[in-house]
């Protein structure tokens, strides 16, 4: 009886721990560090050329100057269309031609082949509105852009 109790306690604790971890990473489709470099922040300012409203990550394309000052096409990974909609980013606010400023982190390979890639953290609209555009709990640097981050 005693050993059975212990076993169910361990099992229960395990399930709770798993649930706690699961809640934290529910939005994480894959880890930030697998593709992006937390030590390579980028600040991109430019006009939106295309937005792919797709799952599991929306992609915002814009022409912007990278860290080396050269203007190139960038594609910036955001959250799911659903996450973005709830954050206040949708097809009406983020249109082709909108001038935006995106803070994010460049891809690890920095190859810019076929285009430069970055993970988006927040986006600033022409009216000054600043919105978190990423996914929570992916292991991205805690830079204050994610309102869901616990300090």
């Amino acid at each position: 009886m005693n050993s059975r109790l212990t076993l169910s306690t361990i099992l229960g604790a395990g399930i709770l721990a798993a649930a706690a971890i699961g809640v934290g990473s529910a939005a994480a489709h894959h880890a930030f560090s697998a593709e992006f470099d937390g030590k390579s922040p980028v600040l991109l300012r430019g006009k939106v050329t295309k937005v792919e409203w797709i799952n599991p990550h929306a992609w915002v394309h814009l022409n912007a100057a990278g860290p080396d000052g050269k203007v190139e096409e960038w594609m910036v990974e955001g959250g799911t269309p659903n996450t973005l909609l709830r954050a206040g980013v949708d097809k009406n606010t983020l249109k082709v031609g909108t001038e935006i400023i995106v803070r994010g982190y460049q891809s690890k390979d920095k190859a810019c082949t076929p285009v430069c890639k970055a993970n988006g953290r927040d986006v600033t609209f022409p009216d000054g509105r600043k919105v978190f555009m990423g996914s929570s709990g992916t292991g991205a640097p805690k830079d204050g852009s994610d309102p869901g981050d616990k300090q």
Binding site: W53, I54, N55, P56, T80, P81, N82, L85
Partner: peptide, 12 residues
């Protein structure tokens, strides 16, 4: 389907 707000996530 790929751009859906809920259905794709539900499938996955």
């Amino acid at each position: 389907l790929l751009g859906s707000l809920n259905f794709w996530g539900l499938l996955e």
